[in-house]
């Protein structure tokens, strides 16, 4: 192509070039906001499904909370992937390992807090 590619693929010394395949940016552009509409419809469907499960007692109580949580994580992934343009970056997507660490710490705080409190007394 033209000389434009050469500017960015050549090492800049700023850590701007992609070194790790997984952290390579993905950029999505479209002439119609189809992704946004898909994301909206899916998030509405997931929310109403979770609400319906509780309102109409479609599941036994034991598995209900697990299913609701799974639906919540799917919806969070949708928001991140579609609305927050998770894979977009200038060069290497360095925010991905930062977010992964935050998720690891966050789940650790919640999970181990519940776990440790199960020993002495019941956490419902």
């Amino acid at each position: 192509m033209d000389g434009e590619e050469q500017i960015d693929t050549a090492p800049t010394g700023h850590g701007d070039e992609v070194e790790v395949g997984f952290l390579a940016p993905r950029i999505h552009a479209a002439p119609f906001p189809g992704m946004q509409i898909t994301g909206y419809v899916l998030s509405m469907a997931l929310t109403l499904a979770a609400f319906g499960l509780v309102a109409y007692h479609w599941l036994p109580l034991s598995s209900l909370v697990t299913v609701i949580l799974v639906l919540a994580f799917i919806q969070a992934a949708l928001q991140l992937g579609i609305f927050m343009h998770l894979r977009e970056a200038r060069g290497t997507a360095w925010h991905l390992p930062v977010l992964a660490l935050a998720l690891f710490v966050g789940l650790g705080i919640v999970g181990f807090s519940i776990w440790i409190m199960l020993f002495k007394s019941g956490v419902s």
């Binding site: 992609v18 360095w94 977010l99």
Partner: peptide, 30 residues
């Protein structure tokens, strides 16, 4: 897959603005 100036979104065209977006991701992580 290398990024070129042409297919890069407008928010990431400028190096300094891209760093600010990265900083905002760090804030969200906290």
């Amino acid at each position: 897959m290398s990024t070129t100036t042409a297919d890069r979104p407008p928010e990431f065209q400028d190096m300094h603005e891209s760093i600010r977006i990265m900083g905002f991701w760090i804030f969200l992580s906290t």
